[in-house]
Structure formats: C-alpha cells, structure tokens
Design a protein around this nucleic acid. Sequence first.
DNA 1: TCTTTTCATTTGTATATACAAATATTAAAA
DNA 2: TTTTAATATTTGTATATACAAATGAAAAGA
Lengths: 142, 142
Amino acid sequence: MKTSECKNCNCLYFSANAFARKVEKLASETWKKVGLAPSHATLLGVVLAEPGLQAGQIAAQMQLTPSTITRLLEKLEEKKLVIRNTDGKMTNVYPTQKAKDLKPLMKQCMDEFNEKYTKILGKEESKHFIQNMNIMADKLGS
Amino acid sequence: MKTSECKNCNCLYFSANAFARKVEKLASETWKKVGLAPSHATLLGVVLAEPGLQAGQIAAQMQLTPSTITRLLEKLEEKKLVIRNTDGKMTNVYPTQKAKDLKPLMKQCMDEFNEKYTKILGKEESKHFIQNMNIMADKLGS
DNA sequence: TCTTTTCATTTGTATATACAAATATTAAAA
DNA sequence: TTTTAATATTTGTATATACAAATGAAAAGA
C-alpha cells in the first residue's frame, strides 16, 4: 500500500518513522557483509575517524543519549572492535586493530549503501533531500 | 551540535533516523495529554477511522509488521481502548466506547502536533517535505 | 580540608520494533 | 475425504533506544 493511501497516517510522525524504517532496512542489508547493525557501523565509523573520543562527545555527535552510547559500546566491545579507557569520570573510546583492519570493508559498505539509494532515489534528489532533512532536524532542536 | 557538523554521519541512514527521533520526541510530548505513545495513538486513530479492520490490514496501512501490530494491540487492549474479535484465522479490531469518547481529545492532539511542527518548520515547507518523504518512502519499496 | 555541587558514565527498567518459529484455520489437491 | 499447502496471527527472542536513578569522580565553597 502506498503511503499516500493511508488517510489516517498523513502526518509528520508517521511519515518520518515509516521512512526511517525503510532506510534502516536497506542499511541493515548492506552492513550485514561486515556483521554489523547500521547503528553499530555508524558508531564504529565515528570512533575510527576520531580515536579517543569521549563517550559523551560521541553521543552529541550521533545525537543519541549517553545511555544508548553505553549500550552500543558494550556490544562493540564484546566484538573486540573498540576498547573503553576510563580515566577519572571520563571514558575515551579507541578502535582495536581488528576494527582498523575492517576499515576498507566498511568504506565499501558505505559506498555500496550510497550507491543503492542514489540509484533508487536519484543522485541530486537524494542529496537535496538529505540536506533538507538535516536542516529540518536542526530546526526541531534537541 | 548541528547535524551538518557530523562529518562521519552524513548519510541517509543517519539523517533519517536522527530526524525521526526528533519528530518522535515532539509527538510524545503532544500525546502525553491522552496518555498514549505516538504509535499507540496512530494505531488507535486507524481503528477509530475504520472499526473492524483486520490486524493484517492495519499492519499494511501502518507499514509495520504483523507482530508489531499484535504487540501494540495488546497494549491498547490492556488500556481498554480496543477489542480484538477473532473469527477463524482473522482478527478484527474494534474501538471501545472509551476510545470513541477519546476521539475529540485525540483530534485536538493531532491538531496541536501539526501546529507545532508547521510553526517550527514552516507551513508550506513541511507540507512539501512530507510529500517528498512519502514519495521517497514509496520508491524504497517495502 | 571537608562538604556540597556538578558532571560523565553506567544501570535498571520500559517501549518499539523485527525476524523466525509456532499455531491455528481455511483452501486446494490427491 | 484425507492430506497438503497457504494464510493470519501470535510467541519467543533479540535489538535499538530512552528516561530516571545510581555511581563515581572532579570542582567549588565553606
């Protein structure tokens, strides 16, 4: 059923969530190749890009709550992809060698994912749409 | 931190989810007035609009899996807002009187929510954005 | 220096959601 | 008619996420 046919659901809440679920699904398929859920892959990408980042800074960057970051880090630590280094009240997060080795494959997944959705949604269209969505998200505040 | 500052997260997956979380938050605040989570409110809205709808049809309309609909219906049944009428392998869902009484208040919440986000995002902008998002969602398929 | 406040993280608990397997029921095939 | 296949829903299990409370550590005030 087309979204437009859902008379009772024609509001921002429904549309945003339905859209996010579909994107999540596409992303899940893509990152199965490295055995990571999209959220885990995103977090690992952040840690790989800035080793030693504080947990709270990661939360701010990913716009998730600190508790969610803790939970995600637990999983990544179980998989030996990151280590948490607690110093006083701060916790710094570092990628392991295993994670560093995974970097090229992760980039490949990201490229593949970008390719998939630009193919489906159009290159310029999706670019503008994402920009617009980011602007909208910023307007909605934290 | 502005989304645009997150260099590592500039992809459709991240943007769509961050946006959906923010919308969810705004919606949660709004529907607290009737003591319902946005997803519950949406489902109840569907049932109120089309009493007797089958569980599977609700799932299709809301673009959620049947199992999720079962779980949501359990909660609404606990709250005495809907009843499930199982006939053979089909289950039809009806709103209770309590739910019908809630209808005006629910409409008020919906109006308030629409007003909130059009005020933040702009009337025409949000309208076009939602349309565009629905089109994108359709393109992504099920 | 000792106490209080603030801050970063983690834990306990709860919700939303999905997938795969189990159930139960109707329809189709033999 | 008996078996087999298809279908609708529910259950078991797992993930992502949040909020509120707990913990632990540093900073500020007395």
